[in-house]
Design a protein around this nucleic acid. Sequence first.
DNA 1: TTTTTTTACGACAACGTTGTCGTAAATACT
DNA 2: AGTATTTACGACAACGTTGTCGTAAAAAAA
Lengths: 334, 334
Amino acid sequence: MNLKILAKELNLSFSTVSKALRDSHEISPATKQRVLEKAKELNYQVNPLASNFRKQKSKTIAVIIPEVVNDFFGPVINGIESIAQEKGYHVLIYLTHDSMQKELEISKLLQNGRVDGIMISLASQTSNTDHLNILKEKEIPLVFFDRIASEVGTPVVITDDYHCGFIATEHLITNGCKHIAFLTISENLSISNDRKNGYLDALKANNIKHDQALIRFCNEDDMSNKDNIKNLFSGNNQPDGIFASVEKLAVATYQICEELTLNIPKDVKVITFSNSYMAALLNPPLSTITHPAFEMGRESATILFKLIEKKGLNRIPKKTVLKSNLIIRASSVR
Amino acid sequence: MNLKILAKELNLSFSTVSKALRDSHEISPATKQRVLEKAKELNYQVNPLASNFRKQKSKTIAVIIPEVVNDFFGPVINGIESIAQEKGYHVLIYLTHDSMQKELEISKLLQNGRVDGIMISLASQTSNTDHLNILKEKEIPLVFFDRIASEVGTPVVITDDYHCGFIATEHLITNGCKHIAFLTISENLSISNDRKNGYLDALKANNIKHDQALIRFCNEDDMSNKDNIKNLFSGNNQPDGIFASVEKLAVATYQICEELTLNIPKDVKVITFSNSYMAALLNPPLSTITHPAFEMGRESATILFKLIEKKGLNRIPKKTVLKSNLIIRASSVR
DNA sequence: TTTTTTTACGACAACGTTGTCGTAAATACT
DNA sequence: AGTATTTACGACAACGTTGTCGTAAAAAAA
């Protein structure tokens, strides 16, 4: 089943049929209808592979993210997919597992017209952006969200991580914390650094001198992270507040406190970045900074499609900042 | 940059270059190397759109799922993607949001060679499988996982939902429950029915006559679900055990119990299907039946690729059953 | 040496669509 | 009525790749 067969059935040239199907003004309403009816009758559908090839457009976007097992990236994909579906686009998913090597390989796959645009949230290990610059040079529409590389110069969509880091820290201070630890995951990531700077500036603003020993870099390994956190409480500057930059580190903190029979929030107050709706049900309920994940997906996808369709290019903001919510629960109040 | 340009640079015909790049036996090792070097030098990559079109293969699979904001489908995608990446395939994601209409539209999009294979977990609203039969008739490799339609006759990968329903119910009975409510989400879904049947048979096996009023069908609306659950406790057959077939209903139960100052597990015991790693941290820790989600993704993807590559077709099981884990925590023991 | 086979490459026709261009016929304008 | 324009369609050449077939030259077999 293809255009030629359909055309033969209709006694029309296949170029006429092709135009009729795409509602070209060159074709009379009468023949359009004839063609449409016959197409429906014979269940004709254009061959997307042929069409994509001919037009050198794939009607597909790629989403590159570190992981999908996560209450943040899930809703983001949801938001992206909702826009893509509206626009009639398809969504490819690629996972980097926070590896720069994987991110590199994936970027290479996408250099050659396989997708019409790319959305990416960087791997925590990504320390340089050559592979992304190549994509930019090839003029493939590219949008960063959350974990961005602003050097590349394509639009970015983020939350106000610095501000959140600041107010979360200040919240702990207001609730009596004097020794606040900061748990983070990467030295490369934009979000980690912004959050850390917010934390540091909040300390400074409240005349608390920061202790480098209270800043802990964690990794993928749950066990070593727990050791790292446990180690905090055996130092000579024991924290009375913990600010985790990702949820899993707050969970690890809960487990360590259980182990060390430290009471949250009496002995240690805890606050974290998290998008889990279950945070409210923890024991004690966990204070969170929660991102507008779905909106972030929709917003960045919307920008990507503007780039793809080259519409209103001059009105695309280089940087879009969405507001996160500080949700105070029992884990961080005295 | 394309084959012709590359061929001209090498003073070879473009068909020779094409073959050399694909390591054809028709080409001498010497020219192969020449071609490969030049290709690298000029950074030539095949145009995937042209190649896909010519071969009528997309090197892409589609994953159709109800949602992605979920601790189950996340790891499943992870598993799928890990196999796809090994095989050099790309992964398209489509969300149905549990709507049959959406599922139908998506199926239609995939009827025409856009993908080489499809993995699907049905929408809860899906009540007939015509759209899936069409895919089967078009001989598009198709694998069902978790929420299956066995009528279609393509391979399915599931967990032992009936058995899990049975043992979870029996566990509650063993812990003293006599009035066990079952919270479910759909009358269409294979998993819901299997779980319910396990529940019913466990009651029967323990000489507890089942009360239809204790079986509640819930939906997407959180508020009405809560009302539904709250209503359970105002009936004349108040439950002392709640078996939720999805996590969100267990969470709603927790919230209702808080509201009604019912103690879990003293007044009501709760167990649920859930893949959240945070279940252990709830107040009280929540007993769960946890699926091997990642493995399910890998297993069903592996089967799909056997169908795609037509390898060992006779050794593909029609039905693969993975084992889930019953994890007993404080919420369900006396 | 002659004949057959193999090796290594080139020519070329697809794959199904889209878009440009050409052109009769129909309509509109002097 | 004669000319200009519009309408409605067909012919055809791409798009870049892959795979089939044809064929000189080289190697092997006779």
